[in-house]
């Protein structure tokens, strides 16, 4: 495990953190790219998912779109977008990542609204709620846990793929790794491993953080219901 040790030594050098283009700079770039990509993903994915879920239509389309984006290599979007009229810079990177943030947000918002008990909706309509009121007061609050889970998937996904921005010189933590590969394994090995460790930690941290958020916004009674539901298939077999 000496190479792992070399990576830790590299991380232990404060200059590697504070230098221009060091870990702090790259981390900041990484987080800025992630923030904007997720924000754009939310602005596009959530209203669409909520609207489709409220209408109860377009389920097939949602699934097809989510599956299609799986087949598109991130590298392809990252390299193609700067060559379109969008031009070079941060914007094409953010847009490319936002494309991968949309499917989980869209699909989860849709599923969340569709999974609201039809009897609950009927009762609400019977009490005289209009379509908009039903959406705001009944469906959305009940769908919040699903939307939060979609947000978590999207954030983790974007944090992970933002590493690839380095392929087109887009900044972010991946830059540390590619710079290491540029030096070659014998000289840059420690840096490659160190970059890998930092990126892994960041991804796991994002996962843990948003799992906490998901738990926080899930009302207590729903928490136990979801847990029971999740446990059920495991106990039947």
């Amino acid at each position: 495990m000496s190479y792992f040790h070399d990576g830790l030594i590299w991380l232990n050098d404060p200059l590697n953190w504070t230098n221009p283009g060091g870990l702090f700079d790259r981390l900041q770039e990484h987080l800025v790219i992630t923030f904007w990509a997720v924000l754009i993903g939310c602005v596009v994915g959530l209203p669409l998912g909520i609207w489709l879920g409220h209408r109860g239509r377009g389920g097939g389309t949602v699934i097809t779109v989510a599956n299609l984006t799986r087949a598109i290599p991130t590298l392809a979007l990252l390299t193609i977008l700067p060559l379109t009229p969008i031009g070079f810079g941060k914007l094409p990177v953010i847009l490319a990542l936002a494309v991968f943030a949309v499917p989980p947000l869209l699909a989860n918002a849709y599923t969340g609204l569709r999974s609201v008990d039809p009897e609950t909706k009927e009762a609400a309509t019977g009490m005289g709620l209009s379509g908009g009121q039903l959406l705001r007061r009944v469906e959305l609050p009940l769908a919040v846990p699903y939307i939060a889970s979609g947000l978590r998937t999207a954030v983790v996904q974007v944090v992970a793929t933002a590493t690839l921005a380095t392929f087109v010189n887009g900044g972010g933590l991946g830059q540390i790794i590619t710079a290491g590969f540029g030096l070659g394994i014998s000289r840059g090995g420690a840096q490659i491993v160190a970059g890998g460790i930092v990126v892994v930690l960041l991804a796991l941290l994002a996962e843990a953080l948003f799992a906490g958020v998901e738990r926080l916004v899930t009302p207590r009674p729903l928490r136990s219901v979801r847990r029971r539901r999740a446990a059920r298939p495991a106990t039947t077999g």
Partner: peptide, 21 residues
């Protein structure tokens, strides 16, 4: 699940010094 969360480039970075670049 944890393996799946690890970004691909980071996984390559951790494996490359071990197995050859």
């Amino acid at each position: 699940g944890v393996l799946y969360t690890i970004p691909s480039l980071a996984l390559l970075a951790l494996l490359a010094p071990l197995l050859g670049a």
